[in-house]
Every structure is written in C-alpha cells, then in structure tokens.
C-alpha cells in the first residue's frame, strides 16, 4: 500500500520524530510506514488521518 505521509509531513515541516511524537509511536514506526515496509492497523490509520485532518483514503492509496 502506498501513502502520502512523507509529503503531508513535509508540507507541515515536521520531522519523522515530530510526527512520531504527535502519534505517540516510535520514529522507527513512522519510518516503516512512510517507506511502505509496514501498513498500519486501522486504529493507527485513523489516528494519522485525524492528525492531518484528512480521510484515510487521501493518505493511504491502493497499489
């Protein structure tokens, strides 16, 4: 699954650490999600969507 996390984060000038802190996860988790090594669970995907104020499908895209 692809995602726009890196772009959305860059638009806000957040580092991976900033995003990790806001999501209360490790920076490694943010890195793994951004690089497509790990697909987040539905609850974490909702938390990400809430943080960016966007629907999930505008952040996570089908391959």
């Amino acid at each position: 699954m692809r995602n726009r996390l890196k772009v959305l984060r860059a638009e806000r000038d957040w580092s991976q650490g900033d995003l990790a802190e806001r999501l209360q996860v490790s920076r490694q988790s943010v890195n793994a999600i951004e690089t497509g090594k790990y697909d987040p669970s539905l609850p974490l995907a909702f938390r990400i969507a809430d943080l960016f104020g966007l629907p999930i499908e505008e952040i996570f895209l089908k391959d």
């Binding site: 209360q24 996860v25 490790s26 490694q28 988790s29 999600i33 790990y38 987040p40 669970s41």
Partner: peptide, 8 residues
C-alpha cells in the same frame, strides 16, 4: 508495548 510496529 503500545507501539504496534515494534510489537510486530
């Protein structure tokens, strides 16, 4: 562990 990636 609350971090799902680390847990996985």
């Amino acid at each position: 562990e609350t971090d799902e990636y680390l847990k996985m």
